[in-house]
Design a protein around this nucleic acid. Sequence first.
DNA 1: TCTTTAAATGTTATTTTAACACTTAATTGT
DNA 2: ACAATTAAGTGTTAAAATAACATTTAAAGA
Lengths: 229, 229
Amino acid sequence: MLNSYSTADKVLLAVDCIIFGFDEDGLKILLIKRDFEPEKGKWSLMGGFLRKEEVLDDAAIRVLNTYTGLQDIYMEQLYTYSEIDRDPVERTISVAYYALINIENHNAELIQNYHAKWFSVSEVPKLIFDHDNMLSHAIRRLRYRTSMRPVGFELLPEKFKMSQLLKLYESILDKQIDKRNFISKINSLDILIKLDEKDMTSSRKGSYLYTFDKEKYDAKLLNNFALNF
Amino acid sequence: MLNSYSTADKVLLAVDCIIFGFDEDGLKILLIKRDFEPEKGKWSLMGGFLRKEEVLDDAAIRVLNTYTGLQDIYMEQLYTYSEIDRDPVERTISVAYYALINIENHNAELIQNYHAKWFSVSEVPKLIFDHDNMLSHAIRRLRYRTSMRPVGFELLPEKFKMSQLLKLYESILDKQIDKRNFISKINSLDILIKLDEKDMTSSRKGSYLYTFDKEKYDAKLLNNFALNF
DNA sequence: TCTTTAAATGTTATTTTAACACTTAATTGT
DNA sequence: ACAATTAAGTGTTAAAATAACATTTAAAGA
């Protein structure tokens, strides 16, 4: 019988979070060293089980908050993974989410307690279970998102240099982008505010700082466009 | 405690299938009239519960096969829905899949047994639970897919007219497309084989039939491209 | 004042896209 | 037989977007 609630099997549902950050070294993800069996001591995404009275989005937020102390974070559901033996302990279905966070804003203490560490996406160690698979899926999704919607507000500090934004796009798309073409395309989106302020730390000339125009940025987030670098 | 398998809640996991088809009237979806409570008699997507020993993809395939008799169908996981009260009987998380099928190939008898019916996407009745939401999500996804990868092989009969392919694109994207521009773009993809055969049923002049070059089609399916109509 | 360093800035050729209308092949009706 | 009908088939051009490319500038430090 297809549709009997009472006889249907129940399963464990987990959420796992792929947490992206960005700093001067490029695109990073946050991993934790598992402190329980199985695979204790191995690197892993941050995860937890869904609770009965909780929706998946909230479970993902809770997991992220538990490990990083962060709230109000950009998250998106990625995919649901259900291979029978993906978790060797017990059949567990996992819904993956990815988050974009500003590395400067996270709670370093919490991260230390959980033995968490930022890794460059190009230098990620072998992860437990099917987390490698989730990560590569998340990177593909982030690349796609970057070509269809603006990115940066979630990952950069409030004030940033154009060269930082360029580097962010280059690390996400994993390719070189012509500086002049990049600037004119970004400017055509009309989502940046150029400040009078300069950052003098990185060059003698100094470079202007920018912020995102949050309203225009959010408007662009809603309507997909194609931005080809 | 975040990670205790033994104390974590278990939940019911369902799959629901959004089944797209295409005929002379345009893009359609297959719905069933529920023959059990709750919401008996209302229109609904096809669904079923995940079994303990089954992966989600297989559950979606099983549900589709049960209602249509079809096998070897193009399906993609869409999204996982977890609102607390989305199913009034019991907390149920549902993983939605969408399928593209050739209407001509389905098993009409099975569909009759289950009181299934094809609806034009523009004339879909109110659906149970959050199925309306799933459907609009699926349409968005299908539109996106259509702009990034070829579509048609899964939905059209083996031999088809160029005008059918055009109409398929127009119904998916819900807009008029210039015939000449369409043909030159489709030809530039190099996925069609023009047959010597003509279909004489629709016009005095007759129109050439085409098939997809399956190998080239599948190759394009893997690498996203942007096709702007 | 000369050197150094990253920042800032525009132009042009190429490619892609969008807009647009007439001819053709065959059948049907007179 | 020929005129009318119907959907099929076919190219050109203007506009827009993209990609390629190099020099100048502002300030600090030697």
